[in-house]
Amino acid sequence: MKSVYISDELHRQAKVRAAEQGKTLRDFVEEQVQRGLERKPTEVPRDVAAMKERVATYQVETPVFVEPASDDPLAALEAQGFIIRGERLRQKLDEVMMRVCQQLGVEPPQGPPPSIEEVRAILARYQQMHPEVPTLSQLVLEMREEY
């Protein structure tokens, strides 16, 4: 008999599954390991593939931070999933806009985002109609006072 250390979470899951099947933890684990060893290396069951996908997603969302020591630190940070830039940033912002639109029940915007001039025009129009309302910059300071 030999001991193998596994994570607390894996231990918990194995214990639950063993109890579900009415087996002891030892028998269950032995059976699972045996089955895994007998499986052809190329054979990847669907549930394992799905698990791998979830792990990959988790790794992107909560990576272990390593200070990058490369010539391009931002690229290294991007590779580790700490920042998003370029096309991925645009995609992320599109996703955010999509969720905001869903909340409001309006159609998501089509085409490129309004230009800086168009943004200024919208704000200028409202500023003219509501001169008593603080500007965006003043609202930022107002919010900071409330924190």
């Binding site: 912002l93 955010v96 806009m97 905001v100 639109c101 409001l104 029940g105 309006v106 159609e107 998501p108 915007p109 490129p112 985002p113 309004p114 230009s115 800086i116 168009e118 943004v119 919208i122 704000l123 409202y126 109609m129 509501h130 309302v133 603080p134 965006l136 910059s137 609202l139 930022v140 107002e142 919010m143």
Partner: peptide, 25 residues
Amino acid sequence: AVNRYRNRVNMPDSEFIALINGILG
């Protein structure tokens, strides 16, 4: 801040979406 502005001026949703989309862009 954009959301707060929208609430203060009663900005229609469609215009708010255009505004925030432009700012994030």
